[in-house]
Design a protein around this nucleic acid. Structure first.
Lengths: 352, 352
DNA sequence: CCTGGCACTCGTTGAGTGTGAGTGCCAGAC
DNA sequence: GTCTGGCACTCACACTCAACGAGTGCCAGG
């Protein structure tokens, strides 16, 4: 591998950086491999195409660009995009009209489901790519009320109110029939002991009490505890992922083989792969970007994923993001995802 | 247009019918235009290709088949499929293994949402096409219980239990704060007067009472009525449509232009067109089939839709169906849709 | 170190050609 | 009359071939 000693030693010359940047910008705009002539015109460097060709050869040796075939221009590789995103890109501030729409559509008076769906819709509408939102984790939501309602026979409806607003229902099958009064008493008992705690804490508390007081307590309280345990245990529904605008992906030439689209849409229905990808982002704070193969999932080889976590009360509760072709306008997408995450968090937060 | 006088007068000769049937079957199986030679071999009619060509010319004049170009075989037109479906097709009884799966996956212990999703999944899995289910109308569901739960300040959570099993929540914003006791009283009043009626009847009843007793009634009852009115009014969520297995449509050659797929998937996210189509089927009883343009929606020009309504307690509450290419194995699909509708209805019915 | 020039590569386009599947029609057989 | 073999014809598809053009790599001279 012969590379000029220069590029090897001092990483990348200023000129090379400028050209790479111009190349990425041009390719992202037009979707066509970029030749030395075009680059000479657009980069503003006053160099001849021939000189530019030399630099391009270096960039190619470094694995930052590649040519689809001998007589085509160059296109950025994943590595090239990565370098561009990490150190060449200038993030554009978001269009104020877009910020306005975002604020209008993410207001505290909406319920969680509506907010999540709206965020997903907005992401896809603004970016013209697929938007997705990991629904907020509920295990830190504070229990504000618990009630039991007798249905028929041994069936009881448990109603959990979280954060004073969100309601969850669970139908429980009990070991015997309880009267209205008994259920009322049990609810009172649980409310006294658990209100204000989050679901996890509530469960722990319940388990503790179960052990501690098993003997010197009347059976009704014991039943109440068991009932609470049942009501809290099943945590389903919380690990869901909401998509919007997958159709947009059909409009990008680089994805438009039916084969690729099929795999992508399969991933959207499967959800599993994308869930694990997003769940890895929940720890890292701020915008994260996966370019091409970086995501580690084959389906996404031709795609980039831009994500950002959102938080309520300073605690990260979910992640959102967009999926599009690697050839995307990162400088525009990044702030969109960033702001959307902030606004979604804010809306969720200021609802209490 | 010269057509042999015979075919004109007696509609369609037995021979022509046999050949059309063989042609449709062969085309559905292989997806290739069918030539006279193949037809001579498969139709079991002991005729030479030349004779068959004569019949085919007649069929083409009648608009039942057409050739994509001069030197290709014939393929059925929508009209051809229509004739086939109406009078040539022999419905296959459903594979017993499939019936078993259907029964196992549509059991009365599932809640409405799970049943609907399961039915949709099953339709798509068995047919290898897209399945859809119109969620059951709720306006005939009998109200079994209504409760109010005080949240914070003027916010009240209304809980409606329908059919002893299904739970609906609504958060209401009231004009003033009510005490627990007051809410309890109001709930009692409403329960006394409304339990057993369906939502529509309940609303009517409420409106009647509002007029009748406005004066000689204590204000609390009046408030209760108003509260009930609020709780019943918003009927959202009920006109929804659940899809499954849209991906399968990507596997059919006749739909595999990205353009067509895009339009189809747009219709799936839009839902509106399909909703109107399905809502038209809710009156007709039994399996309905829309072949190609018959649906009246351009997106579905290359598709056929097979639907069947399902009912609970003898009353039709929804419609389900599949979407696939016009070239589908109708004799197999029709019973699948039919049985699935029956089993879904049965499962919903025997839950009480 | 830059640049003009030149040979070269390779995808794309369009024209030309052969092949095969299938047709329509006609004349003769049953 | 009805059926059928035969024949000329059509047309999509695959293939080849040449021209074209965009772009490259490399070299020699400023």
């Amino acid at each position: 591998m012969k590379t000029s000693p220069k590029t090897q030693s001092q990483a990348l010359s200023e000129r090379a950086r400028l050209l790479l940047r111009a190349l990425v910008e041009s390719y992202v705009r037009d979707g066509q491999p970029v030749g030395s002539r075009t680059l000479a015109r657009t980069a503003g460097l006053d160099l001849s195409p021939a000189s530019i060709r030399n630099v391009m050869a270096d960039l190619e040796d470094l694995g930052l660009v590649s040519s689809p075939h001998t007589s085509a221009g160059r296109i950025p590789t994943s590595l090239g995009y990565r370098l561009f995103v990490d150190s060449l890109l200038e993030v554009k501030p978001l269009d104020s009209a877009e910020v306005r729409t975002l604020k209008q559509r993410l207001t505290p008076d909406m319920d969680t489901k509506a907010l999540v769906e709206s965020a997903s819709d907005l992401l896809s509408a603004i970016t013209q790519m697929a938007g997705m939102v990991r629904v907020p984790r509920r295990d830190h939501a504070a229990l504000s009320q618990i009630e039991f309602l007798k249905l028929s026979g041994r069936q009881v409806l448990a109603i959990l109110v979280m954060n004073k607003r969100e309601v969850q229902n669970r139908i429980l099958e009990l070991d015997r029939e309880y009267s209205h009064a008994e259920l009322q008493q049990m609810a009172n008992y649980l409310n006294q002991h658990l209100v204000g705690r989050d679901l996890r804490q509530a469960r722990e508390q319940i388990l503790k009490e179960m052990k501690a007081v098993r003997e010197h307590m009347n059976t009704l309280m014991l039943a109440a505890i068991e009932l609470g345990e049942k009501a809290f245990c099943d945590d389903e529904g919380t690990d869901d992922l909401v998509f919007a605008g997958q159709i947009h992906l059909m409009d990008y030439a680089e994805l438009s083989s039916v084969e690729k689209l099929r795999n992508l849409f399969e991933a959207f229905t499967e959800k599993r792969q994308l869930l694990t990808l997003l769940d890895n982002c929940i720890s890292a704070e701020g915008v994260q970007i996966f370019i091409g193969q970086e995501s580690g999932h084959q389906v996404l080889d031709d795609c980039s994923v831009v994500t950002a976590p959102y938080s309520v009360g300073g605690r990260i509760v979910g992640v959102l993001g967009v999926i599009g072709p690697t050839r995307m306008a990162y400088e525009r997408i990044i702030p969109v995802v960033d702001i959307t995450a902030r606004l979604l968090g804010a809306a969720l937060n200021s609802r209490n």
